[in-house]
Simulated assay, not measured.
Amino acid sequence: MHLDLDDTKQNIVIVDNAIIVPPPRERGSNNRFQASGVLTAEGEMVENSITWGEGRQINVAPEMPDPDTIEHLPGQHMFGGIMFGHFGHFLVESTTRLWGLEELRPAIESIAYTPKINARPMQFVRQFRPLFNVLGATVPVRSTPVPLRVDRLFVPRQGFGQFELMRGSEAFRAYMRRHAGRRIPAQGAEKIYISRSGLQRDRGGLIGEWLLEQQLQQEGYEIYHPQNHPLVDQVAQYKAAKQIVAVDCSPLHLVGFVGNSEQKVAIIKRRSMELVPYFVDQLRLFQDIDAFEVDVLVDEWLPHPDKRPGRRSCGEISFSRLHEALVERGMASGQQPWRDLSDAERADERERLRVLHEGTKFFRMANRERFIERQKSGTVRGANKFS
């Protein structure tokens, strides 16, 4: 079974005396595929409270909680799904029911989430409060560590998600077009490269990104580090940019929410995972952005003991071929050809990675072609895509 966002059953279920059940608090519990969600007063799982991701059901039906552990939440509220603490997972998996606010905003007192990890759940609510506001979800938000009995709970169906779900439902796309970043004026450079060079060491990226940045700057691009800017400024910049170059990364989801049809977005493939086409779909379907994939991946370098690409892997791309692709799409002048890394620079990059990762060796991905073929055949999914 899977979630079909184009299904005509896109709806909002109303549950009286609903029980919102968070995941277990015990250490070692599976927080990725967890027992949590919404139960009816009779203990039946409400189907609309299921969150889907990676082609699988993320939350499974929990048991009816001990009545002594259930707290009462009076009034009318909306179920928001699972509250993730990671920026990328939040954008793709915790915003999925906000489309319901279009109809429910006047009727509800808050949005209630179950936490991904049942420890200090309100910490993430505070962390993402500015993002809720940017996305038009200005109502109060809670993430409950204990079971709640809600007088009346509205449960919208999921309208967005990972991989093929990044296309979004019609209702979700319409909501984002009307509300995301609406009150933030566009401001910033017209040409930006969304850089990863300033991220934490385990985030992965591109080999020799410094050389790519130098060559993009010569073409008039500003090197943009989102993590160094307040969220409102990020949205202003993404609305202002006419040309954006980036690898597959979480900020592109925000571009998809707040961007516009006058933009061109080149998405560089940085690892052997079939992710970029989903980003392209999101940007095109949400905002009619001229988005396209640039696959000039030459090699992949993985830290020991990783066996396949993930958030820590580093891609080696051909900068000269990337330049040719940008020139063809009118995003570079073509006056000065770009160069690729020399053998000495490549060796220096490997040593830099080894030191950065405290002695961890990086090695070329083994069986890379086999992995790519298995992905195409559908027998394997990529590793965690957010970073």
Results as ranks from 00 to 15, higher is better:
residue 13 V to L: 06
residue 20 I to W: 11
residue 24 P to C: 04
residue 25 R to G: 14
residue 30 N to H: 05
residue 32 R to M: 12
residue 38 V to P: 05
residue 41 A to M: 04
residue 43 G to E: 08
residue 44 E to H: 12
residue 52 W to G: 01
residue 53 G to S: 09
residue 62 P to T: 06
residue 62 P to E: 03
residue 69 T to I: 13
residue 69 T to R: 11
residue 76 Q to Y: 09
residue 87 F to D: 01
residue 87 F to R: 07
residue 93 E to P: 01
residue 97 R to C: 05
residue 108 I to T: 10
residue 116 K to Y: 09
residue 120 R to P: 00
residue 121 P to D: 11
residue 121 P to F: 13
residue 123 Q to C: 04
residue 129 R to N: 11
residue 136 G to F: 06
residue 137 A to D: 09
residue 140 P to M: 09
residue 146 V to M: 05
residue 150 V to Y: 05
residue 153 L to G: 04
residue 155 V to H: 03
residue 168 G to I: 12
residue 173 R to I: 13
residue 179 H to V: 05
residue 181 G to P: 03
residue 199 L to I: 02
residue 208 G to E: 04
residue 217 Q to T: 14
residue 229 H to W: 04
residue 230 P to I: 10
residue 230 P to G: 10
residue 231 L to C: 00
residue 248 D to L: 02
residue 250 S to F: 00
residue 255 V to L: 11
residue 273 M to F: 01
residue 277 P to A: 01
residue 292 F to M: 05
residue 293 E to Y: 07
residue 297 L to A: 07
residue 302 L to V: 08
residue 306 D to S: 09
residue 309 P to C: 08
residue 313 S to M: 03
residue 314 C to Y: 11
residue 326 L to E: 01
residue 332 A to Q: 06
residue 342 S to F: 03
residue 344 A to W: 01
residue 345 E to L: 00
residue 347 A to V: 02
residue 350 R to N: 08
residue 356 L to N: 11
residue 361 K to E: 15
residue 378 G to E: 03
residue 387 S to R: 14
